[in-house]
Simulated scan of single mutants.
Amino acid sequence: MQVPKIMKALVAKKPGEYVLETSWPTPECGPDDIILKVEGCGVCAGDIKCRHGAAMFWGDQVQPRWVEPPFIPGHEFIGRIVQMGANVKGYELGQRLAAEQIVPCWECRFCKTGHYWMCEPHRIFGFFNSLNGGMAEYIRLPKEALKYVVPADLPLEKALLIEPYSCSKHCVDRANISCEDVVVIAGAGTLGLGMVTYAKQRNPKTLIVLDMMDSRLAKAKEFGADLVMNPGKVDVVSEVKRLTGNYGCDVYIEATGHPSAVGQGLQMIRKLGRFIEFSVFGEPATVDWSIIGDRKELDVLGAHLSPYCYDYVINAIADGTLKTDGIVSKTFPIEQWEDAFDAATGKYGDFKVAIVF
């Protein structure tokens, strides 16, 4: 296939200045690279926070800038191979690929010990001008990227969930759920629902989902939750305590991104319980840390990215083991990227929103 020299691309130049370029240079294919024609790219909460200038991306008085503008956003992409470098083996033109969002250096202590998702340089698609993302017609996958073949007949709205659901799987794996556990998942957005449908495969004693939106709770019930509760309508701490003989849940997964859900979980979880923190917060979460230590001796675990999850998730989405119906609720052409980012905030009730080509 003849690849044009210019393409349409959404380009981030500085906080608040994201511009649709119609003649941006198409990435060149080096000897170890793969060029994909992008089919679609999901809009992540991180993309939205970056656009609005969050300090974790652009830096402030405390932390340095991490991003390297100008860059093309987007790490939840699916595409088909249109070019391969001379050194690339094991792939074919036309194959459909997904890639993990992190591109490891393979040289740091984390990469060398198998913990590549914590790679010290920590370069991720969609935040660096040398590692542009999927909100463009074409994207370059370097040699170091972790690439996965996606079934050609998998509908795009399902394929777009591979990256977020892989993050969901890693979070649930961190929780080490058993058949004796009462599990609470706080937050039923796209990632929370990915956790629900995967956690159900772990066969917990009771799976409880919390969210402030009843429409999301209905989807959580459809995806396998045993019980759903709206913290705006129910005293969820008291109710979970009542259901567990006043002990509390065994596992609490925080996937809301709201600081209040952290304190809620610390009150709700039993002594010696497992608290899994997944969210990226827009503001600090302040809690009484003595609950973690002196009062309950909790295991508090973080979950970051999606290591060793893609193979399972691709197969489980394809065969229906992981539920996906209705999660990609809106798609937009790149020309309507502002509408896509607006809908991706969730204020209209959407789960996953994507830009498609």
Rank of each mutant, 00 (worst) to 15 (best):
H258Y: 10
D235C: 07
K219R: 14
K347T: 12
L141T: 06
E100H: 00
L10N: 10
L10Q: 15
I334K: 08
P4E: 08
R80K: 14
G133T: 03
L210Q: 00
D325R: 11
V240I: 08
F110H: 14
V240E: 02
A136M: 14
D325V: 09
I6M: 12
M1P: 11
L301Q: 00
S178M: 01
G53I: 01
D350E: 15
E17P: 08
K205T: 02
E100G: 04
P27Y: 13
I177W: 07
F357S: 13
P307F: 02
V88C: 02
F125K: 08
Y312Q: 06
Y308R: 13
K143I: 00
C111V: 03
S260G: 10
M135Q: 15
V209D: 03
M7I: 13
T113S: 12
K169Q: 11
I208T: 03
G30K: 15
K347M: 15
M229G: 07
R174K: 15
G232T: 13
A285G: 04
C119Y: 03
I35W: 04
T206N: 01
L217E: 08
G59I: 04
C119F: 04
A261R: 00
F357I: 02
D47G: 10
E107F: 04
N230Y: 08
A318E: 12
V184A: 08
Y18P: 04
Q264I: 07
K221R: 15
K112Q: 10
V11P: 03
